[in-house]
């Protein structure tokens, strides 16, 4: 057990826990844009930075990203010191200059009382805040179909060579976890298109409702040893089937008993 303080309150955590996890467990609201429990913390957005110090540091303190700073005995964490708030505001300010139309950024800005950006608004700034969640989740799921491309201010997220990605299965995890909903995909009656590639979606053999893509189902079937037939019926019809199957069994026992 590790013991340390957050905003003066003594807390306990397990060895290896990250500060942010404990901070949120304590119900303290520290913002972040690039954090997701499923993947390794990356420290890209810098919003979750906190100020830390120790008794023996003699008044000296430093700023760390709480999402990837492991808890330490005797640490004294301040989540909303004046400097930390200044830093968060600056980051939000910079975000606002780059992504003026993002509702998520506007929400964050109003939360921190940033009404307008101090900086020059970046021409043709889109809503991708380069948090890298999509690429990290994609890699973690074993696809690595997309990655960050280039560097510096012009960095972007794209499939290799910006062509339709062969490793993508159309699972949509990238789009579903994008904090600013920037990753677009379109659905058709029997297909969906993302990253410039169109995937066939499976339709329930009974009601016709579309479920996941054939590529994704086949991938799961192959790598996870799940019968492909499971994917050919939607969850609603699966439940109905289950009821019917069990109904037959119950009815049979009724008849036998009668």
């Amino acid at each position: 057990m590790i013991k340390f303080t957050i905003n003066g309150k003594l807390v306990q955590a397990d060895q290896g826990d990250m500060l942010l996890t404990v901070i949120r467990r304590e119900g303290i609201d520290v913002p972040s844009q690039c954090h997701h429990q499923a993947v390794e913390p990356s420290g890209a957005c810098r919003l979750c930075m906190v100020e830390i110090t120790r008794q023996e540091w003699d008044g000296w303190s430093k700023f760390v990203t709480s999402c990837l700073y492991p808890v330490e005995d005797g640490l004294m964490v301040t989540t909303h010191s004046a400097k930390v708030i200044q830093l968060r505001k600056t980051i939000i300010d910079l975000y606002l200059a780059r992504h003026p139309n993002s509702t998520e950024i506007m929400r964050l800005a109003s939360e921190y009382g940033v009404t307008r950006t101090t900086y020059e608004t970046v021409a043709d700034g889109d809503d991708c805040i380069m948090c890298g969640l999509c690429t990290r989740i994609c890699a973690h799921m074993g696809f690595s179909a997309i990655s960050t491309v280039g560097r510096g201010h012009d960095k972007e997220i794209a499939p290799p060579l910006k062509e339709a990605p062969t490793d993508c299965t159309g699972c949509l995890s990238c789009a579903n976890n994008c904090p600013t909903n920037f990753i677009e995909f379109t659905r058709d009656s029997n297909s969906l298109t993302i990253w410039g590639r169109t995937f066939e979606t499976l339709a329930c053999s009974q009601c016709g409702k579309t479920t996941i893509t054939r590529d994704f189902a086949e991938h799961l079937s192959k790598t996870r040893d799940i019968p492909i037939a499971y994917f050919e019926v939607c969850d609603d019809c699966h439940r109905k089937e289950t009821a019917k199957t069990m109904g037959r069994v119950v009815n049979w026992t009724r008849e036998v008993q009668a």
């Binding site: 990356s42 420290g43 890209a44 957005c45 810098r46 600056t90 980051i91 910079l94 975000y95 200059a97 780059r98 805040i129 380069m130 890298g132 960050t148 280039g150 560097r151 510096g152 201010h153 012009d154 960095k155």
Partner: peptide
């Protein structure tokens, strides 16, 4: 030449 990962450096 910034790698573009973190906001303070990139933006």
């Amino acid at each position: 030449e910034s790698c573009g990962k973190c906001v303070p450096c990139r933006e």
